[in-house]
Amino acid sequence: MSCSLGISTGSSGVYSALVDTDTSTNAPGAVPAETRFVSADQANSNVGDLVRASIKLMTTQVTDGSEAPRSIGVSYRTDDQLASIKSSLSRSPKQVRAIPEPAAVHAYLAETGKTERYDTTAQVDVGDQGLTVSVVDHTGEVLHSDRIDALAGAGIDRALVDFVTEKAPGHLRRYTDAELLSARCHVAKEQLSTATKVTIDLPVDAMAITRDEFEAIIAPDIERAVTFIREVVNGSPRPVGAVVLIGGGAHIPAVRSAVAAAVDLPLVEIVEPETAATKGAALLA
């Protein structure tokens, strides 16, 4: 099997994907990949170091010698991320190609054929620290890009923590470990993308949260986000044919439906929207 390694960078960690590039054995439009996630924390938050750790993980532990990736691509969002990646890999013997994230996403979409009918698309990245809208033409050129702090995954987690803390009786609030509660709220947020009700374990008792409650919590943030998306799409230098939702926040049903209603354009959905740039980076590598 021929494979390439793709890595995408984010504030909460980096995704890695070993992508099968043997087109003779792959189904048309398929991008077979094995993915991993290396999480950032207080002791390990430097993007470049996380990328280096991911390369080591994917080339020495996930594969054997016969399946080592022939090439490596790393997508980045900002100039600061690019500088950090170059610094951490400056002494690496492996050749790594740095790729702007919108270009990596475009490569993945082109490979899958999901956007082939559109001359221009708007990539809406709902990430951990905010939302980015990038208008990209059919060649992968970024025509315009803008960012807002709405719908940040970390902010949604904090809002859910505040909701649980306020709803819980006083004695539960007093004895709840803040870090543990935050982690459990993060998991609950992800589960509510597919479930209509979840339970969060607390020290003395458990608390149920419904999807309706969750959507009410994030409703103001969604409204702010879709207003921003609409402005960017309407102000695009070229007419936008479709909107592509990527990033972890793209899993939230209320986000998908609100964006679709706001822009009145076809909405391109991806099975694993958080790994689109990762797989695209591998393809471009």
Score class of each variant (00 low, 15 high):
residue 208 A to C: 07
residue 155 G to M: 04
residue 261 A to W: 02
residue 119 D to P: 04
residue 244 V to D: 02
residue 179 E to T: 15
residue 122 A to T: 10
residue 60 T to M: 06
residue 211 R to W: 00
residue 227 T to F: 08
residue 203 P to G: 11
residue 256 R to W: 12
residue 138 H to A: 13
residue 275 T to Y: 05
residue 20 D to C: 14
residue 272 E to G: 02
residue 281 A to T: 12
residue 230 R to M: 06
residue 193 S to V: 13
residue 75 S to D: 07
residue 182 S to R: 14
residue 142 V to K: 05
residue 214 F to D: 04
residue 278 T to F: 03
residue 240 V to R: 02
residue 117 R to H: 06
residue 214 F to C: 08
residue 193 S to D: 14
residue 113 G to N: 08
residue 39 S to I: 10
residue 110 A to P: 00
residue 24 S to C: 11
residue 49 D to K: 01
residue 58 M to F: 00
residue 67 E to H: 12
residue 29 G to Y: 04
residue 205 D to V: 11
residue 15 Y to W: 10
residue 184 R to I: 15
residue 140 G to F: 03
residue 199 T to A: 07
residue 275 T to D: 02
residue 179 E to F: 11
residue 215 E to N: 14
residue 93 P to S: 12
residue 224 R to Y: 05
residue 253 P to L: 14
residue 251 H to R: 07
residue 211 R to C: 05
residue 273 P to Y: 05
residue 127 G to H: 03
residue 69 P to A: 01
residue 111 E to I: 05
residue 65 G to T: 14
residue 19 V to R: 02
residue 190 E to K: 13
residue 39 S to K: 11
residue 274 E to K: 10
residue 2 S to M: 09
residue 74 V to N: 06
residue 108 Y to T: 07
residue 217 I to N: 03
residue 271 V to G: 00
residue 243 V to H: 01
residue 266 P to W: 08
residue 118 Y to V: 11
residue 259 V to Q: 07
residue 149 D to R: 09
residue 259 V to L: 12
residue 145 S to N: 00
residue 70 R to K: 07
residue 119 D to R: 09
residue 100 P to G: 08
residue 189 K to C: 10
residue 127 G to L: 07
residue 234 N to Q: 14
residue 208 A to I: 09
residue 146 D to P: 03
residue 261 A to C: 08
residue 76 Y to I: 03
residue 201 D to F: 00
residue 41 D to M: 06
residue 163 F to N: 02
residue 95 Q to D: 09
residue 105 V to I: 13
residue 216 A to E: 02
residue 200 I to D: 03
residue 6 G to Q: 03
residue 133 V to R: 04
residue 145 S to A: 09
residue 54 S to R: 01
residue 108 Y to Q: 04
residue 27 A to Y: 00
residue 252 I to S: 04
residue 120 T to H: 12
residue 77 R to N: 03
residue 184 R to C: 15
residue 44 N to L: 10
residue 214 F to T: 12
residue 168 A to D: 04
residue 228 F to E: 06
residue 116 E to N: 14
residue 168 A to L: 09
residue 158 R to I: 13
residue 252 I to Q: 05
residue 255 V to H: 15
residue 260 A to Q: 08
residue 56 K to W: 01
residue 130 G to L: 10
residue 102 P to N: 08
residue 163 F to R: 04
residue 281 A to I: 14
residue 118 Y to E: 08
residue 64 D to P: 00
residue 285 A to D: 03
residue 269 E to H: 01
residue 18 L to Q: 04
residue 19 V to L: 07
residue 216 A to P: 00
residue 109 L to G: 13
residue 98 A to Q: 02
residue 59 T to D: 04
residue 228 F to W: 02
residue 224 R to H: 06
residue 90 S to I: 13
residue 70 R to W: 09
residue 277 A to F: 12
residue 16 S to A: 13
residue 131 L to Y: 01
residue 246 I to H: 05
residue 82 L to P: 00
residue 215 E to D: 14
residue 60 T to K: 06
residue 147 R to H: 13
residue 205 D to C: 11
residue 237 P to I: 06
residue 14 V to T: 13
residue 192 L to M: 11
residue 107 A to F: 04
residue 176 T to S: 15
residue 200 I to L: 06
residue 235 G to I: 14
residue 245 L to M: 10
residue 87 S to K: 13
residue 258 A to R: 01
